[in-house]
């Protein structure tokens, strides 16, 4: 198996809006791919087609040999694909009816059929790693946004997925809480797991990404190493985007 994730000519429309216009990407095991782009560029939709939360109209997705063809697939195939992926959401989407510990255990117990006691032990370990040892029995509504998002990361990690999808994981956070979540994601990246991250955090991309992809208008405009794309972008659209988002300070923070 050469690639961990193969995105092959994905098209997706919402009504008349052709959001993804044939996106392809091959991602190797252990790569950390950061997708940048203005809002409406299709980056979040692309991420969501990878685990079929949004079903693509055309093309195919393959994650570690689990292949789903957009035009011809079964529910079982989609389920198989989802078992190889995990997702961290912009709005955390922790299960509101469960404590933090139950949130993390849920996938193991209900989907992977682990024994409850084993799942609990593993979940506690992983919650300790993301710094939530004190919060096992809190409900999501009792936690700060940063804590909720770290729990969301734990819920994804524990499934030991082949790839974790991060959908703007810090966009909904108060500025002072962004750091703690980014640090957690960095720690995850260092474990060598394959990650695809949609974000606006340029500095984070520079530090963590093995590859940066710039999208606009439903296509990949440019991709490469963070040092190339973020420092010396070739495409005018990428240059414009970067200067807008960093306000010119991007050289300084590099």
């Amino acid at each position: 198996m050469e690639y961990m994730v193969q995105i092959d000519h994905i098209h997706k429309s919402f009504g008349d809006n052709h959001v993804l216009q044939g996106v392809s990407m091959n991602i190797k095991k252990g790569e950390v791919v950061v997708i940048l782009g203005p809002s409406g560029s299709g980056k979040t939709t692309l991420l969501r087609t990878i685990n079929f939360l949004d079903a693509a109209d055309e093309g195919s997705i393959t994650v570690n040999e689990a292949r789903v063809d957009a035009q011809k697939h079964s529910k079982a195939q989609v389920l198989e694909l989802r078992k190889k992926t995990a997702m961290v959401f912009q709005n955390y989407n922790l299960f509101a009816n469960m404590t933090i510990l139950q949130n993390v255990m849920e996938g193991l117990v209900t989907v992977r059929k682990f024994k409850k006691s084993d799942a609990e032990k593993m979940s506690m370990e992983i919650l300790d790693k993301v710094g939530l040892s004190e919060k096992y029995h809190c409900y999501p509504s009792q936690l700060s946004g940063g804590q909720q998002q770290r729990a969301g990361i734990a819920r994804a990690l524990i499934l030991d997925p082949d790839v974790i999808l991060f959908d703007e994981p810090t966009s909904a956070l108060d500025p002072e809480l962004v750091g703690e979540v980014l640090n957690t994601i960095k720690a995850v990246a260092q474990t060598g797991i394959t990650m695809i991250v949609v974000t606006h955090e340029i500095a984070f991309a520079k530090e963590v990404a093995s590859r940066v992809v710039f999208m606009e208008g439903g296509v990949v405009v440019e991709e490469g190493k963070p040092g190339e794309i973020l420092v010396n972008p070739k495409e005018p659209r990428t240059q414009q985007f970067l200067s807008r988002i960093t306000g010119g300070i991007n050289q300084k923070s590099a």
Binding site: R82, A86, M87, F89, N91, N93, A96, G107, T110
Partner: peptide, 22 residues
């Protein structure tokens, strides 16, 4: 919230399981 169903799918649940558990 619609995100609850998506989160359930993201950890690999089937539709019926997601309904029952979440």
């Amino acid at each position: 919230d619609k995100g609850q169903l998506e989160a359930a799918y993201s950890v690999g649940m089937k539709g019926t399981t997601a309904f029952r558990r979440i």
